[in-house]
């Protein structure tokens, strides 16, 4: 297992998966507060000549909280796309190029291969989203004022990391169904957006992993941890089920088919 984890770490660095995700998370973490403080007000002033700065600050939530909310929406809209497509080849590519055959023939267990991928990228996603959130918090704090507790920002980062782990599991599952990594990416993206839409339309976010994002917004908006326990429990159960199904699909796969 340890050697598999080391292999996944090396592959993550070599294929620049870590770099792509970290760079995009950090980019938006830094960009959002700067946009809020400097660029958006100037754009509005240019668009509506004669408008006073006080009116602009009423239109935009120019605070640390507003910046963090902006970053959270960027992370959901763009971060999701980046994560899904960066990780879409994790299993799909390996199955397509038959690179799993050799480790399996040399006695490696499928459970160990799949689990090491999940462990490495789950820890990385948790760290990346928490780091991005903390950097956005610090930047926004310097530009506006520190009006939120760091602890709640760390919790929000962990919740976003949890949602990203759900996406990682979906990518792995769809990777066993569709051999093309881009196809896997689109399928995962479509499915996750569909779940979010269902959650909003039927107001059942609480029972879906997308509820983690809603809980994060509630924590930021009014320090409310209501329903978080239920959403967390359901998300963990779903993630475990998806990884079990992924494992079962790989176990029943004919590896020497041409």
């Amino acid at each position: 297992m340890k050697s598999d984890i080391m292999k996944e770490l090396r592959m993550g660095i070599r294929t620049s998966k870590f770099l792509v995700i970290t760079a995009s998370f950090l980019f938006f973490a830094i960009l959002t507060p700067i946009m809020m403080k400097f660029i958006l007000p100037q754009l509005l002033l240019n668009q509506f000549q004669g408008m006073e700065e006080a009116t602009i600050s009423q239109m935009l939530d120019m605070s640390q909280k507003g910046s963090l909310l902006g970053y959270m929406s960027d992370l959901f809209e763009i971060g999701t796309i980046v994560v899904v497509f960066a990780l879409s080849g994790l299993l799909a590519q390996e199955i397509k190029e038959n690179t799993l055959v050799l480790p399996i023939c040399s006695g490696k267990k499928l459970f160990s291969i799949v689990t090491s991928k999940l462990v490495v990228f789950s820890i990385f996603l948790i760290l990346a989203s928490t780091l991005g959130m903390v950097i956005c918090y610090l930047y926004a704090g310097v530009l506006f004022a520190f009006d939120i507790e760091l602890w709640s920002v760390v919790v929000i980062g962990l919740l976003y990391g949890g949602y990203m782990i759900f996406l990682l599991n979906l990518v792995m599952l769809f990777g066993t169904i569709i051999k093309s990594s881009i196809g896997t990416g689109f399928m995962t993206l479509g499915f996750s957006l569909f779940l979010y839409f269902i959650g909003s339309y039927l107001d059942v976010h609480m029972y879906l992993p997308s509820g983690l994002l809603i809980s994060a917004q509630n924590i930021l908006a009014n320090q409310s941890y209501q329903n978080l326990g239920v959403t967390l429990a359901i998300s963990i159960i779903l993630v475990l089920m998806i990884s079990k199904i992924t494992h079962m699909r790989l176990e029943h796969r004919e590896w020497n088919e041409r």
Binding site: I30, I34, F38, L43
Partner: peptide, 23 residues
Amino acid sequence: NTIELTGEMFIMLLPLVAIQLGL
């Protein structure tokens, strides 16, 4: 639309430029 680049804004933008240029 013109956006005035202030010294403060420039300093805050430096990490973004570094990420972009590095990548």
